[in-house]
Simulated scan of single mutants.
Amino acid sequence: MHDSSPLESTGVIDDDRLRLMFICCHPALALEARVALTLRLVGGLTVLEIAHAFLVSESAMGRRITRAKAKIKAAGIPYRVPTAEDLPRRLAGVLAVLFLVYNEGYLATDPDAVPVRADLTTEGIRLARLLHALMPEEGEVTGLLALMLLTEARRTTRVSADGELVPLDEQDRRAWDTALITEGHRLVRERLAAIAACEVPGRYQILAAIGAVHTSARHFRDTDWSQVLALYDQLVAVDPSPVVELNRAIAVAELDGPEAAIAIVDRLENRLHDYHAFHATRAELLRRLGRNQDARAAYEAAIELAGNTAETAILLRRLDRLH
C-alpha cells in the first residue's frame, strides 16, 4: 500500500498493531486475500502457517499474497488510517486475522515450532480486548473475545509434560482457569440476551456458545452434546465449511454413535483429504467401530500430515494401541 500524504493522525485506534490490521484489511481486496496479507504483514505468521490456516499449499498461498500485493500497487490503494466510519467494512477481515493468529498460538501448525505459543495467544486476546473496548456493540467482536477466553482457559492442559497433545476428554478440568471461564461465560450470556431480542448470531458467537457448553461441564461425560450439536447446526447454516461439518460430526458421534458420524466424515474426504484432523477424526471413529485395519491406515495418513510434535505423539500412541 502507498500514499504520498503523511500520516497525521492515529485515528480512533490507539494501538499500533490493531491500527495496522485495519489499514491492511482494505475492502478493495477479497476477504481471503486481505486476511492472508494482513496475517503475513502484521500478524507475524509465516506463509506456511497461513497456508495451513486456509488448507492450501504453501506455494498457492505465496501466490495469493503476491497477487494481493500486486493489486494494491496497480490499483493505488492508499495506505491511510481508517476513520470510525471505515471500521465496520473492515471488521470481518480483522476478526478473521485475530482468530487465526490465536489459533496458531493455541496449536501450532509448523512442525518446527513449539506446539503451543503463548506469545500468540496472549497477543490475540490483548488485541481482541482492545477491539471490544473500541466496538462494544458489535456482537461478533464480543463473540470472538469470549471464544478466545474460554479456549485460553484450557491452554495449560493442552499438552502433557512429555509433549503429547491432550484431547478434551483427558484434560484435567481442575487446572482450567476459572477466572477466564467466568469472564467468557458472562460475555456469552450478554450475546444470548441480544440474540433473544432477535439479533442473528454470527460465527464467533456460536463458537463461543459451544465453548461455553464445554467449559460448563465438570466432567467430559457431563457435556450436553445435544446442545453442542444444535449449536453446530446453527453454525453450518452460517459457515458451511467442511471443517465445521467435521467438527459437527464429532458431536454426532458422541450423541448418536460412531456409525452415524462416519457417514458424515466420509462425505468430506474430497474436500479435506490433505487435512490431518480429518484423518485423525476418521481413524478414531473407525477404531470405535472395530475397523482396526482401516483405522490404522487413517492414523498413518494423519501422522503424515500432522502439524507439530504434540499432535504426532498422540497419533502415534493411538496407532500403537490398535491390535
Rank of each mutant, 00 (worst) to 15 (best):
E138M: 05
E140M: 10
V141C: 07
T142G: 06
L144M: 06
L145K: 03
A146I: 02
M148I: 02
L149H: 07
L149M: 08
T151Y: 08
R154G: 00
R158A: 03
V159W: 03
V159M: 04
V159A: 03
S160K: 05
A161S: 11
A161W: 01
D162K: 09
G163H: 04
E164F: 03
E164P: 02
E164R: 10
E164I: 00
L165S: 07
L165Y: 15
L165G: 04
V166T: 07
P167G: 06
D169E: 15
D169A: 15
D169T: 13
E170P: 05
Q171R: 15
Q171S: 10
D172N: 05
D172W: 13
R173A: 14
R173S: 14
R174D: 14
A175K: 14
A175E: 15
T178I: 12
A179V: 12
I181C: 13
T182E: 15
T182P: 10
H185Y: 03
R186V: 06
L187V: 10
L187E: 08
V188I: 02
V188R: 05
R189W: 14
R189C: 11
E190P: 04
R191H: 08
L192R: 06
L192Q: 15
L192H: 15
L192V: 11
L192P: 10
L192Y: 08
A193M: 12
A193W: 15
A194G: 01
A197S: 09
A197D: 11
C198I: 00
C198W: 02
C198M: 04
C198Y: 13
E199N: 08
V200Y: 00
V200F: 02
P201H: 09
Y204L: 01
Y204K: 02
I206H: 11
L207R: 08
L207H: 08
L207K: 11
L207G: 09
A208K: 00
G211F: 07
G211H: 03
H214D: 01
T215Q: 05
A217W: 00
A217I: 00
